[in-house]
Design a protein around this nucleic acid. Structure first.
Lengths: 116, 116
DNA sequence: GCCCGTTATATCCGGCGGTATATTACGGGC
DNA sequence: GCCCGTAATATACCGCCGGATATAACGGGC
C-alpha cells in the first residue's frame, strides 16, 4: 500500500504535543465505522491491536467526548462503534483536508516540480 | 518552549515516505541562513549536529537541487549557506503554510471547540 | 607549518515506539 | 455453565531514531 504520493501533503491537528487526529487516525476511524471492531480494523490496516487501541485512546482523551465507544463481551465478543460525535469529528477533519488540498492545489503543483 | 498551540495544525510535504520539508526543517533553514553554520544552528535549536546534518542531507536528497551548500575548512572553519534554490523552497513552503492557515481559519476555530 | 572551527563520517549507547505474546474481563448464544 | 471473540491490560523484546563522542578532512589566517 502506497502511503504517500510524491509531493503530497500531510495534515495533522495537534493537541499540545499529541496528534489529536491525522491521516492515520482518520483512516482507523473509517475502518472501525465499517467493521465495528478495533481488532479487525487493526488487522486490515496491518498494525497491532495494541497500537490501534492506543490511537483510539489518544483520540478519546484529546476530544471533549469519546469518538469511539467500545464494549467487551456480548454478541460477537463485543465491538466498537464510532459515536455521532466521532462522525462529526471525522467529517470536519475530512472537510479540512479537502480545503487544504484545494487551497494548495496551485502551489503544490509548482512545489512538486522542485522535488527530485 | 511550547511547540504547538492547542488545536494548531502541522503541514508536511512528503517525498515518498520521507519528509521533504516541514516546520522543523523550515526553521533549520532559516537558522542556517542567519548563522551561516549548521553546527551553530544545531546549538541554537537544541539539537545535535548529527541530527541537523541529517535533516539538511534529507532535504538535499529530496529536492532537485541542493538547498544548502556547505564547505569544510577556510575562514572560520567553513560554513554552510542556503542556496538561491533553497530560499525559493523556503518561500514557497511558507506561502503554503500561510495558505493553509487562511483556508483553515474558520474550520479550525470550530474544530478546536471539539477538543478538550 | 601549525592552529582553529567547521563539515563530514563512524561508533556506541539509551530511550522510545512498536510488535508479539500472554492473560484477564466481559457478556450474549447455545 | 461453557464457548467464543472481542476489549483491555501487562510484559518482554526488538528496531530505530537521536544524542554523545571520537576522528578525520578541509582550508584560510597567522
Amino acid at each position: 500500500m502506497r502511503r504517500h504520493a510524491r509531493g503530497a501533503t500531510k495534515l495533522r491537528v495537534m493537541f499540545g504535543t499529541e496528534i489529536a487526529i491525522g491521516p492515520g487516525k482518520a483512516e482507523l476511524l473509517r475502518h472501525i465505522a465499517r467493521t465495528g471492531s478495533i481488532s479487525a480494523s487493526a488487522r486490515r490496516m496491518g498494525m497491532s491491536y495494541r497500537r490501534a487501541w492506543l490511537l483510539v485512546d489518544t483520540m478519546n482523551r484529546c476530544f471533549r467526548e469519546p469518538v469511539v465507544a467500545s464494549a467487551a463481551g456480548g454478541s460477537g465478543g463485543g465491538g466498537a462503534r464510532v459515536t455521532a460525535f466521532g462522525r462529526k469529528v471525522l467529517e470536519r477533519f475530512d472537510a479540512m483536508r479537502r480545503r487544504v488540498d484545494r487551497a494548495l492545489d496551485p502551489e503544490l503543483e509548482r512545489f512538486a516540480g522542485l522535488l527530485r
